[in-house]
Design a protein around this nucleic acid. Structure first.
Lengths: 121, 121
DNA sequence: GGCACCTGCTAACTTTTCTTTGCATGTGCA
DNA sequence: TGCACATGCAAAGAAAAGTTAGCAGGTGCC
C-alpha cells in the first residue's frame, strides 16, 4: 500500500471518479455481486467499450478490483468487484485533506500502474 | 429546501464540485473563517475571475453561501462562508443514491437558480 | 468454416470543464 | 481627476473527459 491515510490527491481522484453517473451505477451494480465486463455492459445497457473505460478509472482510483478468470468452458472473463471503502466529507475533513494536496501546477503522481514499489530512499 | 435527503443527482453534483483542487482549497480556507472574494483570491493566489467561477459552482452545489455586505467605508463586499455538510461514501450509500439518479440521456434538473419554490402539485 | 461468446486496444470525434483576458460597474480618498 | 479597492460578466482559447466505431486476439460448438 502506498499510504494508509488517503492524501488530498487521492481524495480528488476518488471524488472525480465517483462524480459520474455511469460509474456510480457500476459501483452500485457491483456492490450486489461481482460481474464480468460483457454481462455488466448488457445489464447497464451501455457499450462494452464505454464500460471498459469507466471500469479502468474505477480501478485506478482503487474502488474496484479486477480478476481475469477462465470459465468452465475455457473462456477468459474479467470479473470485477467493489473494494470496501468509506469516505467522509465534511468541511473539517477537507481542511485536513488539503494539507496533503500537491501544489498547483505540479503533476499529482500517477497511480495508474502501481503494483507495489518499495523504494529504499 | 428541496429534499432533506440528497438525491443521486445531488450527490453527483457535490462530488463533481469537490473533485477539484482549487475548490477543495476554497472550502478549506472558508472553513477557518468567512472571507470576501478579492481577499480570498489573494490568499489562495489565484485570479479573482477564476475564484469567482469556482465559488459559483460551490454555491450552486449548496456547499457555501454568499452574502453581500457593505463595509464601514461603504464598499460592497461579497462574503462567503461554508455550509455545514457531511457526505458519506460507501458502496452501500452509492447503491442507495443510484436509485434516485436521473436516467441517462435526460437533463438532471437545473438547481442553479432555485430560491425556494413551493409547488402545489 | 461460420457463429456466438469473451477480452483488449486506439484513433477520432464530441462535449464539458477550466482558465485567461478584458471591460463594465461602484465606493472612498488625496 | 486619478488611484486603489470592491464586484460582475462574457467571449475565447486550452485542456480534460466522455463516447463511438472499428479493429485485433482468443475459446467452444454445430
Amino acid at each position: 500500500m502506498n499510504s494508509p491515510v488517503p492524501t488530498g490527491d487521492d481524495l480528488v481522484r476518488v471524488l472525480a471518479t465517483l462524480s459520474n453517473p455511469h460509474r456510480l451505477r457500476v459501483v452500485a451494480a457491483l456492490a450486489g455481486r461481482r460481474n464480468y465486463v460483457s454481462r455488466l455492459a448488457r445489464e447497464l445497457d451501455i457499450s462494452r467499450a464505454l464500460l471498459q473505460v469507466h471500469l479502468k478509472k474505477l480501478e485506478a482510483a482503487g474502488l474496484v478490483t479486477s480478476r481475469l478468470e477462465l470459465s468452465e468452458d475455457g473462456k477468459a472473463m474479467k470479473f470485477y468487484e467493489v473494494n470496501a471503502f468509506a469516505v467522509r466529507l465534511t468541511p473539517q475533513d477537507i481542511v485536513t485533506a488539503v494539507q496533503t494536496l500537491t501544489p498547483a501546477g505540479q503533476a499529482p503522481a500517477d497511480h495508474t500502474n502501481e503494483t507495489d514499489e518499495k523504494g529504499a530512499t
